[in-house]
Nucleic acid binder design. Sequence first.
RNA 1: GGAGAGAUGGCCGAGUGGUCGAAGGCGGUAGACUCGAAAUCUACUGUACGUCAUGCGUACCCAGGGUUCGAAUCCCUGUCUCUCCGCCA
Length: 438
Amino acid sequence: MIDPSVLAENPERVKQHLRKRHAAQDTFALVDRAVELASTRRAAIAERDRLRAQRNTLSKDIGDAMKAGNAAAADAMKTAVGEGKVRIDALETELTSVEAALAEIALGLPNLVHDDVPDGKHESDNPVVRTWGTPRRMSGDSHVEIGARLGGLDLERAAKLSGARFAVLLGDVARLERALINWFLDVHTNENGYTEVLVPYVVQRHCAVGTGQLPKFEKDMFRLAEPLNGADAFLVPTAEVPVTNLHREEILDEASLPIRYAAFTPCFRSEAGSAGRDVRGIIRQHQFHKVELVWTTTPERANEDHLALRRHAETLLERLDLPYRTVLHCGGELSFGATRCFDLEVWLPSQGGYREISSVSWFGDFQARRMSLRYRAGEGARKGKVAFAHTLNGSGLAVGRTLVAILENHVRDDGSVSIPAPLQPYMGGRDHIAARLT
RNA sequence: GGAGAGAUGGCCGAGUGGUCGAAGGCGGUAGACUCGAAAUCUACUGUACGUCAUGCGUACCCAGGGUUCGAAUCCCUGUCUCUCCGCCA
């Protein structure tokens, strides 16, 4: 959520950011509507509070009059309070609907855009900010064929269980997936200072509102048919949702920041808008695994923290010897809640191009406002003041896509696949997975 | 699934209709004392919204309703936590 006072007092600035995002036309009208609603809201609050102050004074006087035995005076004042109450009730009814309408708009507006974000509308407008490694294979079999030859990937049987966009992994390929999870977590906790956290995979609606998936993108998530503990609930689309919400509605000490979590979770996505894209293989699945890195930090630190987080993800690809590039999202590509975002794209020979394997986002205080995640400044001019924290997250990494990249980049001529050195300890010390003889 | 107890400020804990944003203690901050520290003493120590802003007003004692001139306090509903029994991984 963007700052409501900026929305109310500086709508032109908000629209400028919307233009940079190439937002839909009707979004601009919503900004104007919000300005009207905010003004109505302020007027209603002012009148209601004035009447309540009057009531509170009178109530005291009534008590005094009754103690003094002056029933007639008390009754007269009771009548006056009663009249005020009718108006107060009307104003509160009005406020409830005005604030609901305002919240609906505010929760549906995307974040403001960081100055670093370049103009542009499409993926092709994202500038490349880093390239690492040289692709050895420029084309060839996809992970589907390679995985099948290893006896480790069975999409047909997965379809018997769950339909399209699911996979069954077997043998050493399944173990390689598990090795990646363990290695990612070990690197982040042992070398990068993250705290490992294991969280629920089902969350109630308010959490997904907090991180920004809701209310706008409900179609992308799996919603449970039955209420969970009395509330609407969803399978997590990413660990970002439960982990960022861990400290919702808290006021953290600045000394405890940044808080950095590394979380492994399965991720569930309905991908409703993706019909026809990546139908083959395991690039786009309804269920996949991801290790996610989530930071809660201060506005002062956030810029450098965002770059540090990006390096934590990039380094993994380098150690796995997987060529990749890093792009900076242009305005039109920037996701709803992000103020600045880097995508890491790994080289996939079968596609002859780079594919997203990690998205490293800085949200400013956008998510923090939605979940009331705040901190108290410890030092400096603002000492003792409470402010919204900044949140960041990035994949470190998407496990399934890393597996695909390893299969496709490290396959050998005989159909076997080399295991990158860091993963070998997790694979019984072996340096390759052999192809089956058939 | 059955039975019971509870939810108050950073923490502990008092408060059963008005003088309660809330006693007291702990913790924290500042000052005094001290060469310094400890101990001691003094003061301060919530969040949000509104505003004709070094001030004033309003709301918040789990949440939502209700009773009342007036609710932390009374009533209803819900949520969560704890204890015991049952079941289960």
